[in-house]
Amino acid sequence: MEHTLNTRVLLVDDEEEFLSVLANRLEARDLKVSTATRGEEAVAIVDQKDFDAIILDMAMPGMDGLETLQKIKEKHPDAEIIILTGHGSIKAGVEAMKLGAEDFLEKPVDIRELMEKIQDAKEKRVLILQKKSQEEIEKILKSKSW
């Protein structure tokens, strides 16, 4: 897959063995992967660092995936979040999408499908950042009296 170089991904899942295996599989595909095992930890990491995609488990003790999604989106509305769950339901998926999730995948996840979703999220994020930069340039140009 092209354009994966420098793709920054945050994986959030309370199942540490799954988290480790998935992180290794993504790193083997040249992604830069950070991990968190709790929703609170994920929110703190996202406050410190930018990611092209956040892969978030739905069912976690404490702050669950939906609450974590809400907290991240409050401060970082442009965050591209993909929900992963082993306990998928249509209702939960719809709720996640309403709250701003980019996509919803069930475990066990197909690595090719996940890579496609990550690439889509990165491309969308790049477009959003380009648009913001263009708007900022236009704002600066308008504010100057040439």
Score class of each variant (00 low, 15 high):
residue 2 E to N: 15
residue 5 L to R: 15
residue 10 L to N: 02
residue 12 V to Y: 01
residue 13 D to C: 08
residue 14 D to A: 05
residue 15 E to W: 06
residue 15 E to R: 06
residue 20 S to N: 13
residue 22 L to G: 04
residue 22 L to I: 10
residue 23 A to E: 01
residue 24 N to P: 01
residue 25 R to Q: 08
residue 25 R to V: 01
residue 25 R to H: 02
residue 26 L to C: 03
residue 27 E to Y: 01
residue 27 E to L: 00
residue 28 A to T: 02
residue 28 A to C: 04
residue 29 R to P: 00
residue 29 R to H: 03
residue 30 D to R: 07
residue 31 L to I: 01
residue 31 L to K: 02
residue 31 L to V: 01
residue 31 L to D: 00
residue 32 K to D: 01
residue 33 V to A: 02
residue 35 T to Q: 10
residue 36 A to W: 06
residue 37 T to I: 04
residue 38 R to P: 01
residue 40 E to F: 02
residue 41 E to Q: 10
residue 42 A to W: 08
residue 42 A to F: 07
residue 42 A to H: 05
residue 42 A to Y: 07
residue 43 V to T: 06
residue 44 A to Y: 05
residue 48 Q to S: 12
residue 48 Q to Y: 04
residue 49 K to S: 08
residue 51 F to Y: 08
residue 53 A to E: 05
residue 55 I to S: 08
residue 56 L to I: 03
residue 56 L to Y: 05
residue 58 M to T: 04
residue 59 A to S: 15
residue 63 M to P: 09
residue 64 D to Q: 09
residue 65 G to V: 07
residue 65 G to H: 14
residue 67 E to H: 13
residue 67 E to F: 11
residue 70 Q to K: 15
residue 70 Q to H: 13
residue 71 K to G: 06
residue 71 K to R: 15
residue 74 E to T: 15
residue 75 K to W: 06
residue 75 K to P: 02
residue 75 K to Q: 10
residue 80 E to A: 01
residue 82 I to M: 00
residue 82 I to P: 00
residue 87 H to A: 09
residue 87 H to K: 14
residue 87 H to E: 08
residue 88 G to T: 13
residue 88 G to M: 14
residue 90 I to P: 07
residue 90 I to M: 14
residue 91 K to F: 12
residue 92 A to Q: 12
residue 92 A to K: 13
residue 93 G to E: 14
residue 93 G to Q: 12
residue 93 G to F: 10
residue 94 V to S: 06
residue 94 V to Q: 11
residue 96 A to P: 07
residue 96 A to H: 09
residue 97 M to R: 06
residue 98 K to G: 09
residue 99 L to A: 10
residue 99 L to V: 04
residue 101 A to Y: 03
residue 105 L to S: 04
residue 106 E to H: 13
residue 106 E to P: 06
residue 107 K to A: 12
residue 108 P to D: 09
residue 108 P to M: 09
residue 111 I to K: 06
residue 111 I to H: 06
residue 112 R to H: 13
residue 115 M to I: 14
residue 116 E to W: 05
residue 117 K to V: 01
residue 117 K to Q: 03
residue 118 I to K: 01
residue 119 Q to S: 08
residue 120 D to A: 03
residue 124 K to D: 00
residue 125 R to K: 15
residue 125 R to T: 03
residue 126 V to A: 04
residue 126 V to M: 10
residue 127 L to Y: 11
residue 128 I to P: 04
residue 129 L to Y: 07
residue 129 L to N: 10
residue 130 Q to H: 10
residue 131 K to Q: 14
residue 131 K to I: 13
residue 131 K to P: 03
residue 132 K to S: 13
residue 132 K to V: 07
residue 133 S to K: 15
residue 134 Q to H: 10
residue 136 E to N: 09
residue 136 E to D: 12
residue 136 E to F: 11
residue 137 I to Q: 12
residue 137 I to H: 11
residue 138 E to A: 12
residue 141 L to G: 11
residue 142 K to E: 11
residue 144 K to N: 09
residue 146 W to P: 05
